[in-house]
Design a protein around this nucleic acid. Structure first.
Lengths: 342, 342
DNA sequence: TTGTAGGCGTTATCAA
DNA sequence: TTGATAACGCCTACAA
């Protein structure tokens, strides 16, 4: 293997100093045009590849953003990543992608590793199992810019980008109520995660606002995965017929898919026996055996805006910490029965 | 903002040399147990975060792998990435994810940037618009390990991980033939991309083997996106009725989805008017209005194995260059008519 | 416009 | 077991 070409080698080759070469390579100012061309030609001839590691060390800047997501299989996060990558690319940043797989320990480790790799900033959507946020606090206190998106952390002084989960959950629950359903259950996410708690709150709010009694048995602790929705729904189906809900508000689409599977599996019909709604408008939602009523989230935009905000924080330490809320839209399909005019 | 804690600061704090601290931090051998504990305690007290950038510079190793994919929205690549991330994580590597968006220029730039960031290796699935591979050759000749996956490059001396595209395309085409279709068209991918060329070859092979005439008009240049399939199918539908094919082999599932849309849009039925098959078993394939017959690819496994091979190359320069082929499976659904027993 | 000296934070090497 | 010194490749700051 040939020895790596460095600035010094180029300098020696043309009999000039390293600084001249460095300047020529970086298109700064103040350099003789001919010198510059000579340097560039020599660099090409020798097959020079600049070393960003060395550059990063000197400049204390890596042009790299760490991205930690809890999940990647479904359609939401890939869309978010596309948005992140696009904005990062435009600003000449790369992204290091880490997958927490909903696991707190992995998330913690990822944060530490990324901090050690000296990423310029961090974009995080919290794992399902996360119960405390010391590990966020730790890097933030070291001055590492962090933007929390989708599943956010509040009160630690970082910008957040999300939708209005509470309001959206309230809206979709109310949609069921307006159609005429009264006994409505919620397959809830973990309340330690922002979206779990906020969607539950929205669900409760809708009942209250419409003077429906909140039956605590109808709040089924669930999770964000299809299997969670499936298991929770199975539990509901074990209740005696008269004690069962008629409407189901799932914490997200994958959970709704699981619930749908459980319902159909036991020979019940949607929406005749159970009305079902999800949350996030997964790419599969409209394709399911019973197309799913859900909340559409602007995933791609969310990725873009979170990244823009993060880069703003990186490049300007005075950038204002904000809670950014993106609009959603209720998408009515057949899983909840006829369309309401409201 | 407080000043960053370094090895030197820890050393000063406890009155020892930097080397002792470094050794203690790295759990090497040869260090007094008490010294080690003292260092660790002090490091924690001061909030030390190791600087991998400096370490990388010294050790000429970043524990980072560059991953370049052409597309991220559909289900194939997210699954691959999950496999990549998992294996990388187990071996303590992180991944830098770059998105070429099917664009040759972006892919070139990504390769250069990743080489400059001194990733330890590169995992690439070629963009649709790529016509020449000098940019691969360039980094490979510099000794940067590269593994080409899914959409592979051959003959440049790198390991490849893919399925047997030619055989699989032959099989699924033959499946249509066995059912009884004789006039079969192919929505082809760009032949400059391995899978485009190989799937076309497989298609041709199946016709030949079964003594069907190859009608060049039935090979429609298409692309890997839904819109490409849609446009190509529209072209086919403009042919006079008697000159139209009865079976359609799409280069991949998204293209098949586009074709399906075009067919149904004009009031035709699948499979009654047109039998349709795809390739890759996208997550939506079984959920479509007409469930799609397709080839199942082991995406997650593909990501895992490509990464294992890459890390093997990284950690052992004598690792054998291989063409790894993963098995596929034909998944018969209703879009191709009744199930064949074969 | 070009060059010199020093340092970014860490580890390899050799010596004590 | 511990320490001093140089080196990784580049850039900042200052000088010529």
């Amino acid at each position: 293997m040939k020895k790596r070409v460095t600035v010094k080698q180029i300098a020696d080759e043309i009999g000039m100093s390293m600084m001249t070469v460095s300047r020529a390579l970086n298109e700064n100012g103040n350099i003789n045009k001919k010198t510059r061309e000579k340097v560039l030609k020599t660099a090409k001839k020798l097959g020079y590849i600049p070393n960003f590691v060395a550059k990063s060390l000197v400049q204390q800047k890596t042009f790299t953003i760490g991205v930690i997501i809890p999940e990647i299989t479904h359609s939401f996060f890939p869309e978010v990543i596309r948005g992140i990558e696009e904005v990062a690319y435009q600003s000449k940043y790369q992204i290091i992608l880490a997958h927490s797989a909903e696991d707190q320990q992995k998330e913690k480790l990822a944060i530490r590793t990324l901090a050690s790799k000296r990423v310029d900033g961090l974009l995080i959507s919290t794992a399902q199992s996360v119960t405390e946020f010391d590990h966020y606090q730790e890097v933030v206190s070291h001055g590492l810019p962090l933007v929390s998106f989708d599943r956010c952390v509040y009160d630690i002084g970082v910008s957040t980008v999300s939708i209005d989960d509470e309001l959206s959950a309230e809206q979709i629950t109310e949609h069921l109520i307006k159609i005429g359903y009264k006994k409505i259950a919620h397959l809830a996410g973990p309340v330690t995660v922002s979206i779990g708690k906020k969607r539950l709150n929205g669900f409760k709010k809708a009942l209250k606002k419409n003077k429906l009694v909140l039956n605590e048995d109808f709040i089924i602790p669930s999770g964000f995965q299809e299997a969670d929705g499936y298991n929770s729904m199975k539990k509901l189906l074990k209740l005696p017929k008269t004690k069962r809900p008629r409407g189901i508000v799932a914490v997200n689409d994958p959970a709704a898919f699981g619930a749908m599977k459980a319902i159909l599996e036991e020979g019940y019909k949607i929406p005749e026996d159970f009305a079902l709604v999800g949350f996030s408008d997964d790419i599969r939602a409209e394709l399911m055996e019973v197309p799913l009523t859900t909340i559409r989230q602007p995933a791609y935009e969310l990725g873009r805006i979170a990244t823009q905000k993060l880069i703003a924080h990186i490049e300007n330490s005075k950038e204002k910490v904000e809670e950014i809320i993106l609009p959603t839209e209720i998408v009515v399909r057949s899983s909840c029965g006829f369309k309401s005019s409201s």
